[in-house]
Design a protein around this nucleic acid. Sequence first.
DNA 1: CTCCTTTGCTACATTTATTGTAGCAATACG
DNA 2: CGTATTGCTACAATAAATGTAGCAAAGGAG
Lengths: 112, 112
Amino acid sequence: MAKQTSSRSRSVRGSRTGRPIMVLLDLLGRRWSLRILWELRDAPLTSRALRTACGEASPTVLQARLNDLREAGLVELGEAGGYGLTALGRELCETFMPLHRFAERWRSKSRA
Amino acid sequence: MAKQTSSRSRSVRGSRTGRPIMVLLDLLGRRWSLRILWELRDAPLTSRALRTACGEASPTVLQARLNDLREAGLVELGEAGGYGLTALGRELCETFMPLHRFAERWRSKSRA
DNA sequence: CTCCTTTGCTACATTTATTGTAGCAATACG
DNA sequence: CGTATTGCTACAATAAATGTAGCAAAGGAG
């Protein structure tokens, strides 16, 4: 294991400023980032289970994003196998929970 | 031509389920979506100002994302010009505010 | 010890999305 | 008429995501 898929400086413009909020928005703005955190909110999942939960998304991106999130200290690979949220990741997920309720409200108001 | 802009069914797998939370995660998971909402949080901005705020991001994506967000009823183009959040968009932004504080905590813990 | 299964992960060719630069039509102002 | 701004589009170049296939390692079951 080594050169992996992604690592440092994988940033969209915003994060170049280094402002943590920008870095975070950039990270979360990558495809599947939010979804992965969301699917992991309740319990850890094996890579395969996570993939299923994400609708059979391609393992390439999933793996890449998983690495991004791990590097960010939000997700971790348990020694017994399976990906789960770190304490920090759980905190972030809390932040997002209201999103669920919002989404419902949003649909009813937004769509026609 | 004409088909540009993005409209319906521009979705990653998750949103195919139709579950609002998935649709929302998908929308927010596109590049610049979160950033645009963030930059608009305080006051409306003209397209150019927004572009500047986003670090001179290419107008192509910005425009596309702006259309996505408008269609989602989160952003609107004021008749006097300038993009701003709708009531719904503002609600969503509230949801994200804790992110700012989290980002600070995250940096200090996460980065070595 | 074989024969399966599962797990985390990679290869790679194809398809999409994003970037970067340029520029246009419309509107407003001197 | 000049010229500045606004919202928006064109388009070639590049980066990222998708879809399929498959590998090495670890854990049983027989």
